[in-house]
Amino acid sequence: MFEARLVQSAILKKVLEAIKDLLTEATFDCSDSGIQLQAMDNAHVSLVSLNLRSDGFDKYRCDRNLSMGMNLGNMTKIMKCAGAEDTVTMKAQDNADVVAFMFESKNQEKVSDYEMKLMNLDQEHLGIPETDYSCIVKMPSQEFARICRDLSQFGESMAISCTKEGVKFSSAGDIGSANIKLAQTANVDAEEEAVVIEMQEPVSLTFACRYLNSFTKATPLSAQVQLSMSADVPLVVEYKIGELGHIRYYLAPKIED
């Protein structure tokens, strides 16, 4: 028996928004410790890694490990049926071929039950090597989304260069070029508005804007985003999901021929 309850269904809606741009279907691996999902996009350029800890749920029970393959388009249809203030409960029996979603309004005046068929997905689990990243940048997530949107007007790729002084985002194409520099913030009132750089060595990497823009669909989940970079390895873009867990995106760089 698996059962997971979230008082705020809005969180699950946001998680789904954050992954459905990159993935059409995915397997949710449920265990005693929580729910995990790891999947690459079709082109194997990016990877989504979602971790929702059992202790972050309002109620959580998982007697046996369970892998639930879901079509994310269909899951989105069902999650759209939940009111913003509803509580959501996901349930499945052991070895079930369906997952149930129950939405309850405040005071339980309205209770809606939906069942979705599960899929058997071939899933390739990837091992991600432990990396000591040369640069870790923490910045407001809305600022990062804005920069990705603005720079993607200029070209398909953007360079991210990080030094002790700051982080520079740049792009160039037919219409011209764009450069945005963010300095490390000296003092800020709110921690989430800060730009903080931890640098061991300067790094400059180039990435496809299209994927970065997809990652920024996670912006509503967190006020801050963390970018981890080292030379010639995939970028990690991480959004915390409150006390519940995190979503991490890995993106392979563009490299010199």
Binding site: A43, L126, G127, K254, I255
Partner: peptide
Amino acid sequence: GKHQATLSSFFFST
């Protein structure tokens, strides 16, 4: 020029 790498060059199958 630069070309897009894939994750298989960095991560390993488990």
